[in-house]
Design a binder for these strands. Structure first.
Ligand code: NAD
Ligand code: NAD
Lengths: 233, 233
DNA sequence: CCTACTTTGTGCGTACTTTCACAAGGGCGT
DNA sequence: ACGCCCTTGTGAAAGTACGCACAAAGTAGG
């Protein structure tokens, strides 16, 4: 039953590790651009804002790609992480809701450069449908099923108002999309085979407010040196 | 040394709980608008997309605000969570970087309604400085220190390009801001007394890609029934 | 007042995460 | 060819988080 024929790495990479791999990847790509050939776990961890033991353990889930006494080959590690994350192929993205946020997303260049191709924009508002945004013509939401099928959309982005989000999500799912990125402030209900990730700015602000209040309440919390700000999610 | 005079709640609320309180709060506010007076942990958990035991344990960190056999009083719980999160006061927010994203944020109405007042917009581009966006005149980034001081800004939002982010962050911190929400794809370095939360769309997409690849590789992962999509952060 | 029923609050086992600390591996200088 | 020194990879410990299952507490009805 052990299907570990090609690579030594295990099937099960911890979720916490997966969430950090993109951070390492970005740091490594920066190093590569600057011409660095190898990097130690200590240095990379420092750039990525994590503990070096954590970094090593994270990377150990992919395999033994380091060289003791030397560190990691930057290019090789970039490749391994990219492959692990599924970035050696391109992914097709569709955005539903072309308002303030949807437009910002569509116009953002940082996606395409990382292997995410925005293939379609949808909106329900007839004043918006037909507009050209970021080189794409906004389609009517009712064509979602057709387009998702023909364009082979893998990831659906929801940037509609909250009330419409569940409906749009259902349509994405019905059309075969199994990954959804949700910006609307609602909890989406999906079948278990579908992954949903949410980005919720109000929640982020509220978490900050909580800690801000704590600082004000008590007193100055203990201090010592500088730390790196990583996700405290 | 036990300063637990007024409320029974403990000083230490788990981070994971804090991150969920805003979700509960939103669900409860929806209930309140619809005129619901009380709600059971089971029902609220279902709406919020969490396990009911988890919900009860989360709420128990604030105190014993439920009534056995009945549930929780919606209005009372809204108040308690709001107070815990520090939403009984307004928080002043400043946004640095008024590009695609900064504009979307400034124009977004969902902040003000939740006690977050956008007090200032900053940009470095002289073609942008002076523009009116969402009723505010964009100020030059070099006035940041003055404005943050006079407006008593508590939260700084960074929506500049990645290269400028650390510099802008440093200025916020120097000016006394101790909470930062970062949209730029870089790891910010801050003193320990400062909280940073990041929103990184590329990372979210890459995490989705990872799971998408897994689905394609192996087979449908084991599951059963419908689940609610909560943060898997 | 007493019984039946509902729902909270939490003790406890399990699983995941982080961090420490160090043996083992590998390069490099001599 | 050898030994030193650096850095990885990983056991083990400590810290968090989760979710089951149930006693306790409260409501409602007779
Ligand atoms: N703008 C922000 O900075 C921001 C911040 C946080 C959260 N959000 C959330 O993101 C979402 C979008 O925000 P926005 O500011 O872009 O809103 P918006 O009102 O500017 O845009 C929403 C767009 O969705 C379209 N739409 C409505 N129903 C639709 C449907 N059923 N199918 C397809 N399209 C539909 C509308 O026509 C509109 O163009 C909202 O849920 C909002 O709460 C936005
Ligand atoms: N637009 C999106 O949907 C999106 C998505 C993901 C991430 N991001 C990130 O958010 C940030 C902003 O994205 P954007 O699309 O709005 O970029 P943008 O280029 O449209 O806007 C950036 C703005 O920041 C200003 N700026 C540059 N240097 C500055 C400085 N030192 N001080 C103050 N302002 C400065 C620029 O003048 C410009 O107006 C970027 O880091 C980007 O990677 C954006």
């Amino acid at each position: 039953m052990t299907p570990r024929s090609p690579r030594p790495r295990d099937r099960g990479i911890p979720e916490a590790t997966v969430a950090r791999l993109p951070v390492y990847l970005r740091a490594l790509q920066g190093m590569a651009e600057r011409g660095t050939l190898t990097i130690s776990s200590e240095d990379l961890a420092s750039i990525a804002g994590v503990n070096s033991a954590k970094l090593r353990k994270d990377l150990s889930h992919l395999g033994s790609y380091g060289t003791r006494g030397v560190g990691y080959d930057v290019d090789y590690l970039v490749y391994q992480i990219s492959r692990e994350l599924g970035l050696t192929q391109d992914w097709t993205v569709a955005i539903a809701g072309v308002g303030n946020l949807g437009r910002a997303l569509a116009n953002y260049g940082g996606f395409g450069t990382r292997g995410f191709r925005i293939a379609a924009l949808f909106d329900a508002d007839l004043r918006v449908v037909g507009d050209e945004v970021a080189g794409l013509v906004v389609r009517h939401i009712d064509t979602l099923e057709d387009v998702v099928g023909s364009e082979d959309v893998a990831i659906g982005v929801i940037a509609t108002p909250a009330v419409s989000a569940q409906g749009v999500c259902d349509r994405f799912v019905e059309a075969g999309v199994t990954s959804v990125l949700n910006f609307a402030p609602v909890v989406l209900n999906v079948p278990p085979a579908v992954d949903v990730r949410k980005v919720d700015l109000s929640i982020e602000l509220q978490i900050l407010a909580f800690h801000e209040q704590r600082k004000a309440d008590g007193q100055a919390p203990p201090e010592a040196g500088w730390i790196d700000a990583t996700e405290k999610t």
